[in-house]
Amino acid sequence: MPDDARLDKAILASPLAIHGLTVSYDHRPVVHSVDFVTPPGSMSAIIGPNGAGKSSLLKAALGITRRLTGDVRVFGRPYAQMTRHVAYVPQRNSVDWDFPARVIDVVVMGLFRDLRWWQFGGRGQRRRAMQALTRVGMEAFAERQIGQLSGGQQQRVFLARALVQEADLTILDEPFAGVDAATETAIVEVLKSLRDEGRTLLCVHHDLATVRDYFDHVLLLNVRRIAAGPVDQAFTEANLQATYGGRLSSVQLARLVEPALAAREH
């Protein structure tokens, strides 16, 4: 069984290996028996149409919502023992930005696990939070009330909160939704620098046009797993057609897949 042995090895090395994950709401599966082994050190995208279960897959994998069946492993061990290795960036719109907190307060929340209840976060925590803010270019906003930030700035603060966790795997749910072009570039730079440090990134991503530029691996999801693998192999016209049904026009598809054809011809 050389194939099984190879899979076992991949699961041991993977910062997030999902097996047979099913999530259902009201007796209707929104994620059906999905397998995905995140390659270590990769920048992977999860793509699929609205309602394909992209966010549900991640939330269930992280134990935020309940899953029906499925096994989730972090470096081969059960997720519950390994939560410290994973940082999660929820959708920006999932929180109330009118909450009475400053930017620095939100970033320090990422250090939640470093303090016992009787301890107060001191200068050390503040310094780490400021370093993370500097890395996303938001150090000047540390004392700012979070409600005063633009969408792109909010997203950077969320990214900084994940950075202080210093996790092996960072999972981001639509980090580019509703942000300006400058922020998108800045976030991509930070994510790529994390990958260059050997860390792994996994993003729910909407914009098919940038998949090739940003990511090296991709999971195409529409309730079930349609395809997964390196972008060159999995991000094909046939797989996109299967994932999005009739929702993409042939012109759109051709434009998305063309670079792949061009690259192969050379």
């Binding site: 992280l62 134990g63 939560t83 109330d96 939100v106 929340m109 939640f112 696990r113 209840w117 966790q165």
Partner: peptide, 23 residues
């Protein structure tokens, strides 16, 4: 409230993130 202050703040602001850091 003194014991739970960080749990409460985190859970009030961002329950999904709170769940992801075992709060």
């Amino acid at each position: 409230l003194v014991v739970l202050r960080r749990h409460l703040v985190l859970g009030s602001f961002d329950p999904e993130f709170a769940a992801s850091v075992s709060a």
